[in-house]
């Protein structure tokens, strides 16, 4: 209910931040937008004595794109900044869309993409698009850096493989190949300002004949973690998608999910929506890819 006392540290550099984490290791949390963390602290679910804020760490908020590297989203980049970034909008439309519709204006202005991943809620809106893009993240601690594939990152609701003293330094998203398309669609009871009850993200690229070279599909809010749909992806690869195939792929996505009944939706509705949204997402990806759009 009431927040106990705690100390906020505002380091200027990543090294300093890592030192502070180490120094207060018995009771410390990394803090940036605070949109998830502060709620947990207010409710009493978390009560760290120390917060290490990343808001003043130099260079951590940048969003950069180069053909060679793809997209690099700094660990402190805000959702709204990512959503409005011209290159993200052009080359990673599913991510841009997720960043511009999730939660509320206020939360998008404060919350970060890295925080959304670290929070690991199955309903987190950036998770499925980043999975569909084949993203990975760079985690850093005093001992050094490691790159973690997003497919290996989530272990359960609110759980991931990040070590307690690790910081997400950046999220790396590969450069989109030619003739590709991507999309993210979500549904909730309240059409606009709301948490997703079901989310589907897709990515597809085509060869010169219009056959699918690669497809990635990811689902949100329908399992303990966001999930990929390998069966559906395999079904599409090497094929020229038509409505029948898209419907079959949609059905394969349904087999990949493990939804529950809760106050936001029933499992059977979620399954039906995975089917409907997956078809729509794939159709949109295909149209984009075939139209030559990035």
């Amino acid at each position: 209910m009431m927040m106990p006392h705690f100390t906020v540290h505002q380091p200027d550099s990543l090294e300093e931040a890592l030192d502070l984490l180490g120094r207060h290791r018995s009771s410390v949390k990394v803090f940036c937008g605070g949109t998830d963390l502060l709620i947990k602290m207010r409710s009493g679910a978390l009560s760290p004595d120390h917060l290490v804020s990343l808001t003043r760490v130099k260079g951590l908020r940048t969003i950069s794109y180069a053909e060679s590297d793809g997209l690099v989203i700094g660990g402190a980049a805000r959702l709204a900044e990512v959503g409005k970034n011209a290159e993200v909008k052009k080359l990673y439309p599913a991510l841009a869309h997720a960043c511009s519709v999730m939660a509320t204006v206020q939360i998008r202005n404060m919350g970060t993409v890295a925080g959304n991943l670290a929070n690991a809620a199955p309903s987190g809106d950036t998770l499925a698009p980043l999975l569909a893009y084949g993203a990975s993240l760079v985690a850093v601690e005093r001992g050094g850096r490691r790159q973690i594939k997003l497919t290996d990152f989530f272990t359960g609701p609110g759980l991931n493989v990040l070590e307690p003293l690790e910081i997400i330094e950046a999220i790396r998203v590969p450069d989109p190949p030619p003739r590709c398309g991507s999309a993210y669609m979500r549904l909730s009871a309240r059409s606009k300002v709301d948490i997703a009850a079901v989310g589907v993200a897709g990515f597809m690229n085509l060869d010169l004949d219009g056959k699918v070279i690669r497809c990635r599909l990811a689902l949100a809010s329908v399992a303990p973690t966001p999930v990929r749909c390998p069966e559906a992806e395999a079904m599409l690869e090497g094929q020229k998608p038509d409505d029948t195939l898209l419907a079959q792929a949609g059905a394969a996505c349904v087999r990949a999910c493990r939804p529950i009944d809760d106050v936001r939706a029933t499992a059977s509705y979620r399954r039906a929506m995975v089917q409907a949204l997956a078809q729509r997402v794939l159709a949109k990806c295909y149209a984009q890819a075939a139209g030559g759009e990035a």
Partner: peptide
């Protein structure tokens, strides 16, 4: 939304869905 013990399950505005300005 209530469970079979008479407890209300959606006790935050995250889950008690009200139309917002955008709706």
């Amino acid at each position: 939304v209530m469970d079979d013990q008479g407890r209300t399950l959606n006790t935050t505005f995250l889950d008690y869905k009200m139309p917002a300005a955008e709706d």
